[in-house]
């Protein structure tokens, strides 16, 4: 019976995970993308600084919750004022919802008053897949040594309601404060919520 079972298990097709795994406590993988101004940016150019990655789709109602309320822009502004690098990444495939070019990204930034360091375009989805980004928004925090210290949701209440923002724990300011004070990160992962990232089929 054991041999039959073993053979059965061998014949079952093990679907390779399509989204790669990064893990808190492990080095964050390097990547290179073009920003909204056509400039090539790499994660490695920011070594020695804390880096926040924010997955974005301007047309997603969950992204709309955090930008429409000003929550995201405030967090971006507070972080960058403290020397943190904030990279917004758009992994919508060409032709899918949220796919924008550099000019449209700059128009979006101006319209919502976004305050990130750079808006990076990932239409092939290679960086989204590298990090396992599955929703917009989906957040990652990398420390000065290049180690991933947080991954997951932007806050603790999964909804599209702006009214929930004030009631929720905002994870990014919390992580940044703890890293700044040399404290352990109290919440290192929280499930992300939002629209699915619009990868190509």
């Amino acid at each position: 019976m054991k041999r039959v079972l073993f053979a059965l298990l061998l014949t079952l097709v093990l679907a390779a995970p399509a989204l790669a795994k990064v893990a808190v406590g492990q080095p964050a993988p390097d990547f290179t993308l073009t920003d909204s101004n056509g400039k090539s940016r790499s994660l490695s150019e920011f070594k020695g600084k804390i880096v926040v990655l924010e997955w974005n789709n301007p047309e997603c109602p969950f992204v709309g919750k955090h930008y429409g309320s000003g929550n995201m822009q405030k967090q971006q502004g507070d972080a960058t004022a403290a020397g943190v690098i904030w990279l917004t990444i758009n992994s919508s495939a060409t032709g899918k919802q949220g796919d924008i070019d550099g000019a449209a990204a700059n128009a979006y930034i101006a319209k919502v008053g976004a305050r990130q360091t750079a808006y990076l375009l990932d239409p092939t989805g290679q960086v989204g897949h590298l990090y396992g980004a599955r929703t917009t928004p989906h957040m990652f925090v990398i420390d000065k040594a290049g180690v991933l210290r947080y991954m997951g949701g932007i806050d603790s209440i999964k909804s599209t309601d702006k009214d929930d923002i004030a009631k929720a724990t905002q994870y990014i300011p919390q992580v940044l404060a703890e890293l700044g004070a040399g404290k352990p990160v109290s919440v290192a992962t929280a499930e992300p919520y939002g629209c699915g990232v619009k990868y190509g089929s």
């Binding site: 019976m1 079972l5 059965l8 298990l9 079952l12 093990l14 679907a15 995970p17 795994k21 893990a23 396992g132 991954m151 997951g152 992962t189 929280a190 499930e191």
Partner: peptide, 20 residues
């Protein structure tokens, strides 16, 4: 979808652990 295997009076469902 989990891997599903059967043995005698048992069914084993094997899921990948959540990243979270």
């Amino acid at each position: 979808r989990p891997q599903i295997s059967r043995a005698a009076d048992a069914v084993i469902l094997s899921f990948a652990k959540s990243d979270y």
